[in-house]
């Protein structure tokens, strides 16, 4: 029984995609997938250390009222865990130090970037980039093509060239703190997903690039490749019938492209962490 892949999906305060995220991880083969309300972690009844794979799902944490995921990041950084003297952020740092996996999608990606978990250049957990308002100033739901970086250390995108997923956000434009940060991100192959044309050429053109993100960046990983965040929603394309054109494209496989990311995570955990 000890050889189980265990994943946790945190919920509460405006997380919206916890159920479909858990479903995707189960489909990918994880044996234990728990949706845990944040109050359970803060009460100390559930421990992060019992899991291999932490998922920060999409949604609108605290309504994104102070800017996307800002209030949520503040909570994770400052909230104490009852009865331990620890803060939740201490548990999170230990989780990372243990070589485990974290994946943030959309609001979860915004949360990771604003907590400094991504890109975390040189392993320093300090905010050096942000995700802000789309260039057109609006929330949009549309499907986008994404080119992956074959040279990236990212464990989630191993073996993939390009994928097709929906974006559903108003604040998805990546801005780096400085040109140097952007250069380092590119030099270290951390910009693992880029908005692309249908033939997978990265683009700055709207609407293929829906938000004007710097260097067309749609997803980032850290240098270990184990921390990964992206604006598009992989959990929204795990079945054929979630594709917007499944009624006309007859050769679509039963499995959706988003599932591949979760399958890579489960495979990595089985091979490296169990």
């Amino acid at each position: 029984m000890s050889k189980q892949v265990k994943a946790i999906v945190i919920a509460g305060n405006g997380t919206n995609c916890e159920r479909e995220t858990a479903h995707a991880i189960r489909l990918a083969g994880a044996e234990v997938v728990d949706i845990v309300h944040i109050s359970e972690l803060l009460a100390g009844r559930v421990l992060l250390s019992d899991y291999h794979f932490l998922n920060l799902a999409g949604g609108f944490l605290d309504g994104d009222d102070l800017g996307s995921a800002k209030a949520g990041a503040n909570r994770l950084l400052h909230a104490p865990v009852a009865g331990s003297g620890d803060h939740l952020s201490d548990h999170l740092r230990q989780f990372i130090a243990d070589g485990k996996l974290i994946m943030g999608v959309c609001n979860g990606f915004q949360l990771m970037v604003k907590m400094g978990l991504l890109p975390a250049l040189d392993g320093e957990l300090r905010q050096s980039a942000t995700l802000t308002f789309n260039d057109n100033g609006r929330f949009e739901d549309r499907w986008v093509y994404l080119k992956t970086d074959p040279n990236s250390p990212c464990v989630f995108t191993r073996g993939l060239d390009g994928i097709y997923l929906p974006v559903r956000h108003g604040e998805g434009k990546l801005v780096a703190e400085s040109d140097q940060v952007l250069k380092d991100i590119e030099a270290k192959n951390l910009s693992v997903l880029k908005y692309s044309t249908a033939d997978f050429a990265p683009t700055m053109e709207y609407p293929a690039n829906p938000n004007g993100s710097a260097a067309a960046i749609a997803g980032l990983c850290d240098e270990s490749g184990r921390l990964f965040g992206l604006m598009p929603h992989p959990e929204a394309y795990v079945h054929r019938t979630q594709h917007p054109r499944w009624t006309r494209e007859e050769d679509l496989p039963e499995e959706g492209m988003g599932l591949w990311l979760y399958q890579n995570a489960v495979k990595f955990i089985r091979e490296e962490l169990l």
Partner: peptide, 13 residues
């Protein structure tokens, strides 16, 4: 239509 998230929950086929 695009301003409304029409596929959160992953069920809109």
């Amino acid at each position: 239509v695009r301003r409304y998230d029409h596929e959160v929950q992953g069920a809109t086929v």
